[in-house]
């Protein structure tokens, strides 16, 4: 309905679509350097610089910046890795989980930090790249721990009736090789993508109504801006949550591959 009203006002309003996210900066085609690629690279440089700077001189009694890094590190190390993977062999996976968490968190936060305002993870390529590592790691540690045959055997829970085993095995195979990586990547992508579209829709819509609409629409644009603000705060929550969920699921998959029983 709003579209019709706006169209009647004279100019056309283009609702944000998937096309909004395609922003090549240098070159074109499959290997174009796009805006999210640069933001992603920037985030890696930023994280690496901050982490190296904050851990340059570590004291037993922490200072302010060390405390911040330690809080994030402690969340990943103790809250995720140790609790989910178990205290025996969680330390090997702490670097992976820590870099995943910080990278996703910073890239998500870029979605609402003003000069950048582009959630990198709303381009499926980046969640997919991260998922690829998780995928390789959890299969690798599973096969290394149990052997190739043992790994596939451990997918099926013990004590099932014989006739149901092939069915369950097929389902588990699907879970391990398709559902898990696809949902892992799509969850992050979908949340960021949808959240960013909603934000863009509200802000562009409010702007359009304010600039091109009549008096009634100008008034309506005020609650629309407010809504955009509320949704930005909501996005902040979702961004934290998704970074946490991605890391937690990665840890859960690794723990599942390491566990002796299915």
């Amino acid at each position: 309905m709003s579209l019709r009203v706006l169209a009647a006002a004279g100019e056309t309003f283009e609702a944000p679509s998937a096309e909004t996210f395609w922003q090549p900066l240098i070159g074109s085609g499959a290997f174009a350097i796009t805006r999210p690629a640069i933001v992603y690279a920037l985030s890696v440089v930023l994280i690496a610089a901050v982490l190296l700077w904050a851990t340059k001189r570590l004291a037993v009694v922490p200072g302010k910046r060390q405390m911040t890094v330690e809080a994030v590190y402690g969340l990943v190390r103790n809250g995720l890795a140790r609790d989910i993977i178990g205290s025996h062999d969680f330390l090997k996976f702490v670097p992976l989980l820590f870099s995943l968490f910080t990278l996703i968190l910073v890239n998500n936060l870029f979605g609402i930090i003003p000069p950048i305002q582009y959630p990198t993870m709303s381009r499926i390529a980046f969640p997919l790249a991260l998922t690829l590592f998780v995928f390789v790691v959890y299969h690798f540690v599973g096969i290394k721990r149990k052997g190739l045959g043992g790994y596939f055997k451990s997918m099926v829970p013990a004590g099932l009736p014989t006739w149901i085993v092939p069915l369950v095995f097929l389902l588990e195979l699907l879970t391990f090789f398709v559902t898990r990586p696809v949902t892992l990547a799509l969850r992050l992508f979908g949340n960021m993508f949808a959240g960013h579209i909603i934000l863009v829709l509200f802000i562009l819509g409010a702007e359009y109504m304010l600039l091109h609409g009549g008096i009634a629409l100008k008034l309506v644009s005020i609650p629309t801006f407010l809504m955009a603000f509320v949704l930005t705060v909501f996005e902040l929550l979702v961004e934290f949550l998704q970074a946490y969920v991605f890391t937690m699921l990665a840890a859960t998959y690794i723990a599942g591959s390491l566990a002796d029983e299915h």
């Binding site: 690629a37 992603y40 982490l51 820590f98 381009r123 790249a129």
Partner: peptide
């Protein structure tokens, strides 16, 4: 839902860099 090849490559390369720094130093 289909990845852009260039972005996928950038995603992999920079994650490896970050992982190396985190695992070796931090």
């Amino acid at each position: 839902v289909l990845p852009h090849t260039g972005e996928l490559i950038v995603g992999i390369i920079f994650f490896v860099i970050l992982y190396a720094i985190v695992a070796k130093k931090v």
